[in-house]
Amino acid sequence: MDVKDIIKPENLVYSKSKVLTDTIMHYCPGCSHGVVHKLLAEVIEEMGIQDKTIGVSPVGCAVFAYKYINIDWQQAAHGRAPALATATKRLYPDKYVVAYQGDGDLASIGTAEIMHACNRGENIVVIFINNAIYGMTGGQMAPTTLLGMKTATTPYGRRADLNGYPLKITELIAQLEGTCYVTRQSVQNPGSVRKTKKAIRKALENSAQKKGTSFVEIVSACNSNWKMTPVQANKWMEENMFPFYPLGDIKDR
């Protein structure tokens, strides 16, 4: 069968979500952010909630999430997305409110905001990208940087005596009464992408059922700042990040 005979509208099985804009993402080639953006857009499209979803973008690489997912967006100050999301959800209880944050934003400067929003059980969705490094500012140590990992501010590797330990904030979040669903996923292969999509969908459904805060960590690769190719970075992530940040549901009630 000729390719031309296959490429016909009736044979279409997958195309770019209509909730994504046509703007080319500024992310580096192979960046996990792009996959997660796509999944969020697809879930919003499949649930038919484009008109009811309000996003809050962080400071960091995902600051420009608002250029790529065609919903209403608020761009928060560094670490404060859960505060914006709290007010938005309280003032519009029937909307879906998604805070999208990176590890520096959520697990360092914004620890107070994320802990308290989760502890209050705000009916919001938090998507947490953990790539163990500050991406936008050029590869400095993040709270989640692994011991021994070289970054711009730990050029000889992270040392516990100098830099403290990597923070498993998701495990802390899971202990808070206000959270209903806390999971850790990844997006480096088709199977993991499908699981992450299910997790994002579940989180949004929880929000509609007012079950509390849903928190989806996505262990991600930052190949540029890890100084690897995208394919090498995904492999390095599997070998080094997953043992310390094990995948799976930590809490689901």
Binding site: I54, V56, Q74, A76, A77, R80, A83, L84, A85, T86, A87, T88, R90, L91, Y92, A112, E113, M115, H116
Partner: peptide
């Protein structure tokens, strides 16, 4: 009207930011 005791003044003002984004009187 929503009344909420925030965890800090930093959070309070950013709740205002979120609420104001919504076109609400905060």
């Amino acid at each position: 009207m929503v009344v909420l005791q925030a965890e800090s003044e930093t959070s309070s003002i950013n709740m205002l930011y979120g609420g104001a984004c919504c076109g609400k009187k905060v």
